[in-house]
Amino acid sequence: MKVEIWSEIACPWCGLGSHRLDRAVERFEHSGHVEVVHRSFPLGSGLPEDRTLSVREFVLAKYGVIPGQAGVPDVEGMAASEGLAPYRVLDNRVGNTDLAHEFLAHASAEGKNGEAWSMIFRAYFGKAESIFTLDDLLGLADEIGLDRDQTRQVLADRRYRRQVQEDAHQAQQLGATGAPFTVIDGRYAVAGAQDTDTLLGILRQVWDETHPTVLDADNDAAICGPDGCAVPADHAAHA
């Protein structure tokens, strides 16, 4: 079963949604047969590339609300209640994430998709570290064993820019209007950071629909396989 999740790195709901998906897969009875693939859905392409803004400043300017006031969801509190702490949102900074998404595409091409996405969420929300500059990303490359010089060249060439754009376009074609956006086995699209129980229920539903249960009511029933046809023991005895 393939589970694809589209995310924006600096989106607090995406970090929480990724955590919830991980917990759902851990609890899923067939977790060993689940492949989770992270894909990019950049939402901050319009932000300046040469500077960052405080989250409080950004949210106030864009939505006209003050983070933490009544009526504004407490994402940090939700994360803490689900074992994801520290989870720093309000005191973090936000900026253009295009280069970070290209870094993740490069890491994925090197076989480190899940490892790289988990690391960058942990760095950004867990430690409130910057993930916006080339030097920031080269430091992360060192953490997961990517070749620093190769990574530097890939990012300087913007080699994965088109792939990141294609990832976002694919999500939009599937019906995504925001992130996170999850598609399970190509059959169910799930918008938003759904809770772990909901995700677990969908995993089970899709599995049941694509893996029908075989009822073995008669262990001596005749059966044909690649090596020929087996004769039931009682039939062989009377032959």
Rank of each mutant, 00 (worst) to 15 (best):
A168R: 14
L137R: 08
D167L: 05
D157E: 13
A156G: 02
Q165H: 08
Y124S: 01
L134V: 11
T133K: 04
G178R: 07
G126S: 01
R159I: 06
G175R: 12
D135N: 10
L140V: 01
V183F: 01
E143Q: 15
D149R: 13
I184F: 05
R152P: 00
G178T: 09
T151I: 12
A176S: 02
L155D: 04
F125A: 08
F132C: 08
G139I: 12
D157Y: 07
Q150D: 15
A123P: 00
D185T: 11
V183D: 10
R159Q: 11
Q165R: 14
R161M: 12
L174I: 01
I131N: 01
Y124L: 01
A141G: 10
T151L: 10
G175A: 02
R158C: 04
I144T: 10
I184H: 06
D185P: 06
I184A: 13
G178Y: 03
R162L: 03
D136C: 00
I184S: 08
A168P: 00
R148D: 02
R162P: 00
V183T: 02
I131W: 03
R148Y: 07
Q150S: 15
H169P: 03
V183K: 06
D167W: 12
R148M: 07
G126H: 07
A128I: 01
Q165E: 09
R158P: 06
G175L: 06
L174G: 03
E143F: 12
A171S: 09
T177E: 13
R158Y: 05
R152E: 12
F125V: 06
E143N: 13
A176P: 06
V183I: 13
Q153R: 10
D167V: 05
T133V: 09
I131E: 08
Q150F: 15
Q172C: 11
G145A: 07
Q172S: 12
D185H: 13
L146Y: 04
L138E: 03
R158M: 12
A168N: 09
E166L: 15
R152T: 04
I184E: 07
D149Y: 04
L174T: 00
D135E: 15
